[in-house]
Simulated assay, not measured.
Amino acid sequence: MSIAPKPAGPIRVLIVDDHPMVRDGISEMLARQSDMEMVGEASDGAEAIAAFQAAAPDVTLMDVQMPGMSGIEAIAGIRSISGEARILVLTTYAGDVNALRAIRAGAAGYLLKTCVRGELVDAIRAVHSGRRVVSPEIAHALAEHALDDPLTERETAILRLVADGRSNKEIARHLALSVDSIKAQLKSIFAKLDVHDRTHAVTIARRRGHIEP
């Protein structure tokens, strides 16, 4: 579906977040900026795609973790509609893996909700002008892990089951693998995450965004 040309004037912002108070706070902030206006809001990824089609915003502020369709899925969906869409992630999740997924899906920036108001409005202007914006702590984490071996889909699936409290035998049965195979893959996971036990592996995996918090 084609998107209508964007009119000249203030930066038109779509706010996507599953918390109404967050949306209200951002809306009030935008109202105080002479060069910005809110043109729509959504509470999940599916609503975000529909709102993007309806409002044709200049910049979309997108949360990552939401019920139903996630923010990262919504980013990919919006970018499939318009390759020119400019999306700025605004989230509480500081994990470098989440940030990398969002950027690969098409996000132009990744900010944490702990940022000050001035940083957010500056980031909106920067993304609107075609630049990329990443929180310093996210940029540091991305650089720190840039050369790490990524977890495979199977290893991530095993980690999720470990996080659920499943034993090696239960994981093997669930994934139709041998217990020895699970042990070998856990050894690989521990090496990639630089940990020595299951509990620490889950903690680091959640912190970095390999698995859901």
Rank of each mutant, 00 (worst) to 15 (best):
A143I: 01
H145T: 11
V127I: 10
R104W: 01
M38P: 03
M62L: 12
A108G: 14
I49C: 06
R125G: 14
I75G: 00
L112H: 01
G40R: 11
I78T: 09
S82F: 01
A105V: 06
P150Y: 06
V116R: 08
Y93H: 15
D63A: 07
S43H: 12
T152D: 11
G40I: 08
E119Y: 00
L88T: 05
A50G: 01
V121Y: 04
M69Q: 14
M69P: 07
R117F: 03
A108C: 10
A99K: 02
D58C: 05
E137Q: 13
P57Q: 12
V121R: 03
A42N: 08
A50V: 12
T152F: 07
G109Y: 02
E37Y: 00
R101L: 09
P57W: 10
T152G: 12
M69Y: 08
P136H: 12
G77I: 10
A146R: 15
K113T: 03
A48N: 11
A99G: 06
V134C: 09
G77V: 12
D122L: 02
T92M: 14
E73I: 05
A107I: 05
C115P: 00
E37K: 15
D44I: 04
I81Y: 06
A126C: 12
S43G: 13
A50H: 10
L151N: 02
V121W: 01
D149K: 15
H128A: 14
A139E: 15
E155N: 07
M38A: 15
R117Q: 14
R117L: 11
T152Q: 06
A74M: 08
L120S: 03
P67E: 06
G118A: 12
G83C: 02
H128E: 10
P67M: 09
V134M: 13
L111P: 03
H140R: 12
E84L: 08
S80H: 13
L111M: 14
R125A: 09
P150M: 04
A102S: 04
R154M: 13
D58R: 05
A74T: 12
A107K: 07
A55L: 03
G109I: 04
L88C: 07
V59D: 07
S82T: 01
A123T: 05
E47D: 14
T114L: 01
S129C: 02
L120N: 07
A85N: 04
G77N: 09
Q65A: 09
S43C: 09
E155D: 07
E73F: 07
R154G: 02
Q53F: 00
D63S: 08
D58Y: 04
G71I: 08
Y110W: 04
L142I: 15
L88H: 08
S82H: 04
V121T: 15
G71R: 10
L142F: 11
P150L: 03
R86M: 10
A99H: 05
